[in-house]
C-alpha cells in the first residue's frame, strides 16, 4: 500500500509515520500544495496512492482545498469512483462544522480527530479495506 501523509505539525507527522509504516510505503509532505503535486506525480508514474491522511488546517494550502483539487484531478483522468484514493481527513476539532463540511461536500472518505489514536486509525483502515483484520 502507498500512503501519503499531509501534515504540517511535526509531531503528528512522526506519529502517523510510525503508526502507518508497518502497513505500507509512507511519503510525507507539509501542505496542501505539495500534496496535490505528489498526488499528480504518483498518478503520472502510474503508481497512485491508496491512502492520503490529510490535515485540515495547514499553511499555504489547507486540506479542504487540496481535497477538492485531488478529486478534480481524478475526475479529469476519468478515474472510477471505486478507484478513487481513500482520503482520511484529520482535524483538531476546532470546529466540527469545518470537518463535516469537508466530510460531506468534499467527499473525503473518513475523518479522525486529533490526537490520533492508533486503534482508531487502524479501525478506519480496516473499514476502508486497506488492511485486513
Amino acid at each position: 500500500m502507498k500512503i501519503l501523509i499531509v501534515e504540517d505539525d511535526l509531531t503528528s507527522r512522526f506519529v502517523l509515520q510510525k503508526m502507518l509504516t508497518p502497513y505500507g510505503e509512507c511519503n510525507s509532505v507539509v501542505n496542501g500544495r505539495e500534496a496535490v503535486e505528489a498526488f499528480k506525480l504518483a498518478l503520472d508514474e502510474k503508481k497512485p496512492y491508496d491512502l492520503i491522511c490529510l490535515d485540515i488546517m495547514m499553511h499555504e494550502m489547507d486540506g479542504r482545498t487540496a481535497l477538492r483539487l485531488i478529486r478534480q484531478i481524478e475526475k479529469e483522468n476519468n478515474i472510477h469512483a471505486k478507484d478513487e484514493v481513500k482520503i482520511v481527513m484529520m482535524t483538531a476539532l476546532d470546529s466540527p462544522e469545518e470537518v463535516f463540511d469537508a466530510y460531506y461536500k468534499g467527499a473525503c472518505t473518513h475523518y479522525l480527530v486529533k490526537p490520533i489514536e492508533k486503534q482508531k486509525l487502524l479501525n478506519v483502515l480496516e473499514e476502508l479495506e486497506l488492511i485486513k483484520k
Binding site: D9, T11, V15, A92, D94, K114, P115
Partner: peptide
Amino acid sequence: LGQISHEIRTPINNILGFSYL
C-alpha cells in the same frame, strides 16, 4: 475561542505524540 482551543491542543498533541513515539 478557536485560537485558545488550537493553542492548548497543539502542545498536548505534541506531548501525546512524542510519548507514543
